[in-house]
Design a protein around this nucleic acid. Structure first.
Lengths: 246, 246
DNA sequence: CGGACGTTTGAATGGACTCAACGCACGTGG
DNA sequence: CCACGTGCGTTGAGTCCATTCAAACGTCCG
């Protein structure tokens, strides 16, 4: 490819995401009106510089340490963001949904890996062209800023949860989180359909797969959930909410 | 130019200086030139909408759940960002330094609390006026986006560290982190001057104060550090780096 | 010299981990 | 239709690490 003029030590971009579902929040919005006003022309131009990619279940979107060329905006599906430590431990930092951004990079390389959990469509936005576009479209850039702040907020919450509560409480939090995704929760029957296997949930909550099982058993014994099958969990939303808040 | 007395945005306070220390990075810099190019007019305008506040050691900058009116840019000193859970557990999410932003909010209220650890100067930027300014100054907004991404990256790193390693390794990471702050590390003698007490370090690393002590003892026994006093730690930087990477 | 506070150290408890076996659902082939 | 294999989930036993409660130690300041 073309040699980058001078790369210097200038690193790169961020991962950003907003989870449209659950009442996320703008970080610096002066008024609700303002925040809604991303002109459709901006979006058209965003589409102009981007390409659409479709991922099969399990397919990797990008890999940790790989040269970062694009940021990604998720149009549908679920993306799992994971990080591998030098000791070989895998951490899942987030699950991303429609409307979320991903592709956080440092020094021109992706910091984490991203893979689709199910059939997933993303918008691939070349880094350079996106940067140029953001500088000419302040409202669009503001949208990105909002998403970044939302993602930061999410990661902070995760940090507090993981380092502050025991296995059962983390599992309860996770189940309530699942509740916000329409495709995986039936409000009528209160049944959650888990979109990740035990190993993924464990790596997300900072536990082992066995402990996730035991935590589910514990919650079931207290009567907060009932396991219809490994992936189908009937929950008591209100009781669960009270439980996580101790 | 009107002589705002103290608001001399000139000395180190002027540019939104990217925290050079520990792996900070711009997100979408197309070229090194671009990233440096926050026009000084932007900074003047930023100063115009802001006021300077000076905090005494221990003084609170803002409190969790309080109405959020301002974002803050730190000009000097150290700010401790903490979050209190409903169960009464306190988590320290970050220590912020010169050039860092703080004041993350949700639904118009601060998500966390912020307090100064030592005499600290901040620029208080009213939310509404800042929002307006960012929309008219794309380079400035991009600077904010860079900082948000950097902060996200940092929080992710913290998450991985806290949920993946034992007390001694977390402590070692923290000591190396201290190394990046000139005022608290002497490269000649390899002595780190801790800027937080045991309790704060514990809440930052997801440990108890006693465990922090024991972790220090452990590192000392291996010969990676030597405790001159409670706050003065002589370290073996290279050995420590090898240790944290297992 | 004596509090007061922060730090260190000790002993006992508890929670999560590892290792291992077992159960269960699904698919394949006989 | 049953025998078998495989992948995932669950359950059990033992170990290790961090926590809690408690006491001793220092250091700074009265």
């Amino acid at each position: 490819m073309e040699p980058t003029p001078q790369t210097t030590m200038s690193p790169e971009g961020p991962t950003l995401r907003i989870r449209g579902v659950n009442g996320w929040f703008p970080p610096f919005p002066s008024s609700p009106a303002d925040q809604a006003t991303v002109p459709s022309t901006d979006l058209v131009q965003l589409a102009d510089i981007s390409t659409v990619r479709t991922l099969a279940p399990g397919q990797m979107l990008y890999a940790q340490d790989e040269d970062a060329t694009c940021l990604f905006l998720i149009r549908s599906g679920i993306v799992r963001i994971s990080h591998l430590t030098v000791e070989g431990r895998r951490h899942i930092l987030a699950f991303h949904w429609q409307g979320d951004l991903c592709g956080l990079m440092d020094e021109g390389r992706y910091v984490n890996s991203a893979a689709a959990l199910c059939e997933t469509e993303v918008l691939a936005m070349p880094r350079d062209r996106l940067h140029g576009l953001l500088l000419t479209q302040p409202l669009l850039q503001n949208e990105f800023l909002v998403k970044a702040a939302a993602e930061l907020r999410n990661t902070q919450r995760m940090l507090v949860t993981v380092s502050g509560t025991d296995a059962a409480h983390r599992m309860a939090s996770f189940l309530l989180e699942c509740t916000h995704h329409a495709d995986h929760y039936d409000p009528a029957t209160h049944v959650v359909t888990l979109f990740a296997d035990r190993r993924d949930i464990a790596d997300y909550l900072g536990l082992s797969g066995e402990t996730v099982s035991r935590a589910l058993g514990q919650l079931e014994q207290i009567g907060l959930i009932r396991r219809n099958s490994a992936r189908e969990i009937a929950i008591e939303p209100d009781a669960l909410r009270i439980y996580v808040e101790h």
